[in-house]
Simulated scan of single mutants.
Amino acid sequence: MTPGARRALDAASRLFYERGIHAVGVDLIAAEAGVTKKTLYDRFGSKEQIVVEYLAGRDERWRAFLAPYVEAATTPRAKILAVFDASRDWAEVNSGKGCSMVNAHAEISDPAHPAYQVITGQKAWMLALFTGLARELAPRRAVKLGRALMLLHEGGLVAHGLRIFPDAIGHARGEAAALVKGAMPAVDPGR
């Protein structure tokens, strides 16, 4: 990626997150990045493609941010809670206005939009992650537990972005800890 295209994508990413996708036009992106509209169209082809790259880049950064949290955890329970810990830390630095995918979906609900697959793909990946981690803990209840964890996680992200109450993600983590504790198999005292 050329330096101008990188500046444009960085500017677009910041603007889309801060102001909303529909509120930001290519003129503003070009002006903020110090490039011409021609540079934007030569590199990205359309505003829709800039949106795709913004969301895909954010998803890629999130997955890279999350991985060490989960990898450092040593038990299935700790791995699940590590997702909430990572989300809390990520949100403090990167998501003052809530989840970028949820925010984008509020503006892009048409499955034909090229960014729609990025948005729904990221959430499907999160559900698969929670379900896989739940499978390590409670194999027969993995789907149900994965869905419940996903709902807690997403609710925490949305409440964080709306500033409904302090530490919404931490609260969601506490509820997840209780849910996971209830899902853990009983230890056989004879062992």
Rank of each mutant, 00 (worst) to 15 (best):
F84V: 02
F84P: 02
F84E: 03
S87N: 11
D89Y: 08
D89T: 03
D89F: 07
W90A: 07
W90M: 00
W90G: 04
A91D: 11
A91L: 08
A91E: 12
A91Y: 10
E92D: 14
V93W: 10
V93R: 13
N94V: 07
N94I: 00
N94A: 09
N94E: 07
S95R: 06
S95M: 11
G96V: 04
K97I: 15
G98N: 07
C99E: 14
C99R: 09
C99L: 03
S100T: 08
M101S: 15
V102M: 12
V102R: 11
V102F: 15
N103F: 01
A104M: 13
H105F: 09
H105I: 12
H105E: 14
H105Y: 07
H105T: 13
H105D: 13
E107L: 14
E107R: 12
I108P: 03
I108F: 01
I108V: 00
I108K: 01
S109D: 14
S109R: 12
D110T: 05
P111S: 07
H113A: 11
H113Y: 07
P114N: 03
P114K: 02
A115M: 02
A115T: 05
Y116A: 07
I119A: 06
I119R: 03
I119N: 05
T120Y: 01
G121P: 06
G121R: 13
G121V: 00
A124N: 11
W125S: 14
W125H: 06
M126A: 09
M126N: 15
M126Y: 06
M126F: 05
L127F: 10
L127A: 13
A128W: 08
F130T: 13
T131N: 01
T131V: 01
T131M: 00
G132Y: 01
L133Q: 06
A134P: 04
A134T: 05
R135I: 05
R135A: 04
R135V: 00
E136Y: 00
E136Q: 08
E136L: 01
L137P: 02
A138H: 04
R141S: 06
R141P: 04
R141Q: 08
A142C: 09
A142Y: 00
A142I: 00
A142W: 00
V143T: 09
V143A: 12
V143P: 06
K144D: 12
K144M: 10
L145A: 01
R147T: 12
R147P: 13
R147K: 09
A148D: 14
A148C: 09
M150D: 12
L151Q: 07
H153G: 02
H153Y: 15
E154T: 06
G155P: 11
G156S: 09
G156R: 05
G156D: 02
G156L: 00
G156M: 04
G156Q: 06
V158C: 06
V158K: 13
H160P: 11
H160C: 07
H160T: 03
L162E: 13
R163A: 14
I164Y: 04
I164D: 05
I164Q: 10
I164T: 14
F165P: 10
F165L: 11
F165Y: 14
F165K: 09
P166Y: 11
P166S: 12
D167T: 10
A168M: 13
G170H: 09
G170F: 13
H171E: 15
A172G: 00
A172I: 06
